[in-house]
Design a protein around this nucleic acid. Structure first.
Length: 313
RNA sequence: GGCGACUUAGCCAAGUGGUAAGGCACGGGACUGCAACUCCCUGAUCAUCGGUUCAAAUCCGGUAGUCGCCU
């Protein structure tokens, strides 16, 4: 019998955290964070990380498990997430995957295969240098020779993705387009519910604006300064998080703080929009339109009973 | 009340006679090891009325609005 899995996601600032705790309590669940930034220690305000008090005793995994200097990515996430889920099953609990990184959720739900090879930064750098010298089109042409299907799919300007496709070919001798095709057909090996929490765009955007204002009041600037003081640099993956790169620019004199915070608002809205695009095309999702419920309790009740149905299957 | 300047898409903004650059926002989309990343697509007849001209956002005049200076 397939094991149960509950997924709760949605755009940033939609209110996943509070719902997740209610669900975990009612169903005997433990939470695994599916968030690419909340794993990092010391990045609390900018990632709107759940606090100890908010957790209300519910165990959380993949939060504060890495240093900002370490590199976290889908492959690492997938591995650690599966480990956490094993622990949870062993304890007789139900894993609840909560977070807004759709790609990460997909990697676990459909068990996408990321081959053993490590990222080859030397090769990546050489390709990147090649693109600098010869141009993006030339790099794309290189990909066309190796993997025409990928070249058709990936826009020449999307250098980062072109490089990854080339790297895959370089390391495995196979075409990433074919690999992707195979992965795409996979079925979930869990009994699951995949909830996407949503709000009308205008409401969400207002919440985002307010949240960013709150981050400023709560001391995001000091948090970023502390990270810089401890040796973090803009080039770290962790420092590319929303809110971090902008404040770094301001602290290092390339921007004003006021403008940086405005920029964070706009970019967070863009991010939310991208998340909607992602979830809209994900199959097997259950949309939860918050505005269709009289209040949070009603929403929670609905989720609980819907999950129970799934658990009894 | 007088004089002057301005009026181009939601915002900023090129264009001064030959048939509307660009940027931002908004909206849509892609995404299989950096994903809070990276990338793609998308909008106007130029305040308004009339005139000159083969041809006007571009020249002339009226009207309206905005801003500045003066009384």
């Amino acid at each position: 019998m397939k094991r149960p899995l509950i997924i709760l996601t949605g755009p940033t600032a939609v209110g996943k955290t509070s719902l997740s705790i209610g669900l975990a309590k009612a169903l005997g669940g433990e939470i695994v964070s599916a968030d690419s930034m909340q794993v990092y220690r010391g990045m609390d305000i900018g990632t709107a990380k759940i606090t100890k008090e908010q957790m209300q005793g519910i165990p959380h995994y993949l939060i504060d498990e890495m240093e900002p200097s370490e590199e976290f990515n889908v492959a690492v996430f997938q591995k650690r997430c599966k480990e956490a889920m094993e622990t949870i099953y062993r304890r007789g609990k139900i894993p609840i995957l909560v977070g807004g990184t759709g790609f990460y959720i997909q990697s676990v739900l459909y068990d996408i295969n990321f081959c053993e090879t490590e990222a080859d930064s030397a090769y990546r750098d050489s390709l990147s240098a090649y693109a600098q010298k010869e141009g993006k089109a030339a790099l794309h042409q290189k990909l066309r020779q190796a993997d025409a299907a990928s070249a058709d799919r990936i826009h020449p300007n999307n250098v980062k993705k072109v490089i990854r496709a080339l790297e895959y070919y370089h390391q495995t001798g196979q075409k990433i387009s074919e690999h992707n095709e195979r992965q795409r057909k996979k079925e979930a090996e869990y009994r699951f519910r995949y909830y996407v929490l949503s709000l009308p765009r205008e409401v969400l955007y207002e919440r985002i604006d307010r949240r960013v204002d709150q981050m400023r009041e709560d001391g995001l600037t000091a948090e970023v300064q502390a990270l810089l003081d401890s040796g973090c640099t803009r080039s770290m993956v962790s420092m590319q998080g929303l809110g971090y790169k902008e404040i770094i620019d301001a602290l290092e004199g390339r921007d004003t703080l006021d403008h940086a915070f405005e920029k964070i608002k706009i970019e967070t809205r863009h991010f939310a929009k991208r998340q909607f695009t992602w979830f809209r095309r994900e199959r097997d999702v259950t949309w939860l339109h918050k505005e269709e419920f009289p209040d949070e309790d009603a929403l929670l009740e609905y989720c609980i009973s819907d999950c129970r149905k799934m658990l009894e299957e």
